[in-house]
Design a protein around this nucleic acid. Structure first.
Length: 211
DNA sequence: ACATTAAGTGATT
DNA sequence: AATCACTTAATGT
């Protein structure tokens, strides 16, 4: 079961021997929606390879308030673990399962081995690093340059994307927490987005009209 | 029927 | 955009 899923999702990236090694040392894990995978300051021992689902990556401000950075999906890995093999052992971010997620945990010490051994692994790591960096820059742009209503719309679209569903199950308060603003502001902006026919509001859920 | 939680709104800073 | 204060609507017990 693990084997078939692993091959299905990663055979286009990795050669057979590497897939076999991953299978041998990797630990399969199912993470239910909402569960925290990693917290700020925690030591990283495993690098996660996503098989299905999505994970929300959050940063924390000085008062302990959260702010969403981005989502990672199937085929992605965590950039934090990548910088880990360069000496950083503690996580700078918090990771929470956005949906039910299946992943394979690979011991961090294997990463360095495989870097020299498998070209495909090296490519994957470098590519992931690049992807994450790009997403981080995008997150900065979003926070710095977009107005709240644009941020909100982007958030909703991203969320719909990773959930593969244009109806999102959230409360206004949940959104406010993720975007680091207040519930009242979210309610008002959502209302105006609804008036622009971009979304439809229901209790505990929001439907995106035009993707 | 009542309590609780989510959402809507005016006014103020 | 944040906060307060209050209202209204939906849902659970």
């Amino acid at each position: 079961m693990i084997k078939s899923e692993l091959h299905e999702k990663y055979s286009y990236l990795f050669e057979e021997e590497l897939l076999d090694e991953i299978e041998k040392v990797g630990v399969f894990k199912h993470v239910p929606e909402g569960e925290q995978l990693m917290d700020i300051g925690e030591t990283i021992f495993y690098m996660p390879l996503l098989l299905s689902g999505a994970i929300k990556i959050m940063r924390e401000d000085t008062d302990g308030e959260d702010l969403i950075l981005y989502f990672i999906e199937t085929g992605d890995t965590c950039a934090m673990t990548l910088s880990c093999c360069m000496g950083n052992k503690k996580s700078e971010i918090r990771a929470i399962a956005e949906t039910d997620t299946e992943l394979i945990m690979i011991p961090v010490k294997k990463m360095a081995d495989w870097m020299g051994k498998y070209k495909s692994w090296q490519n994957f790591i470098l590519q992931s690093y690049q992807d994450r960096l790009k997403e981080l820059l995008e997150a900065i742009d979003t926070i710095a340059f977009l107005k709240m209503d644009e941020r909100l719309l982007k958030y909703l679209r991203d969320k719909a994307m990773v959930n593969h569903d244009d109806t999102i199950k959230v409360t206004h308060q949940n959104i406010a927490d993720d975007l680091h603003t207040s519930r009242v502001v979210v309610s008002r902006l959502l209302k105006s987005l609804e008036n622009q026919s971009k979304i439809k509001l229901h209790r505990n859920s929001i439907t995106i009209v035009d993707m």
